[in-house]
Amino acid sequence: MNVFRFLGDLSHLVAIVILLLKIWKTRSCSGISGRSQILFAIVFTTRYLDLFSNFISVYNTSMKIVYITCSYATVYLIYGKFKATYDFNHDTFRIEFLLVPSAILAFLVNHDFSPLEILWTFSIYLESVAILPQLFLVSKTGEAETITSHYLFALGSYRLLYLLNWLWRYFSQGFYDLIALLSGILQTVLYCDFFYLYISKVLKGKKLSLPA
């Protein structure tokens, strides 16, 4: 464990908690893509199937449980409790265009052709594009609530910090994982324009609005 990976996990946890609290406190999921949250729940489910079979550390197991619990709770709040506030008119990104290619690619490009490994690879590919419905929703509505932009900033930072973690692990212990690395680069690149808007607008106290 190095500082980049720890900060990455922390940033990821903060993002997940910010979103859950935003929906719970405001009793509204306006501006949030339920489809992205479904994809994240699928990512965690397919990645952490070894939760009980492969103990790494208390930290690892407890974080996996928190991620899975929070992601399902968020999906429940969006499609269950606060579905009246769900923006189904704008949350229309076709997630099958993300699920099917990720699944096919996971069968073709993986480290080991075993069920757990293929599911892990699928979760890595899917995670790299899982934010697209959310970014699509923000582009359609043309703006995002400030709390939502903080959520996206924390979520985008997590994988950027993981890229630094992989750089660190490569130079310190010769470790590299091309599948996770290339997916992580794609995932982070998707946030670039958002990062620019966040830093140039939100940090100056303005609302995040996309150029119409």
């Binding site: 690892n60 490994e117 590299y176």
Partner: peptide, 10 residues
Amino acid sequence: GYMTGSHDEL
């Protein structure tokens, strides 16, 4: 080298 088997990252 490549990481196979158990993945130790979240």
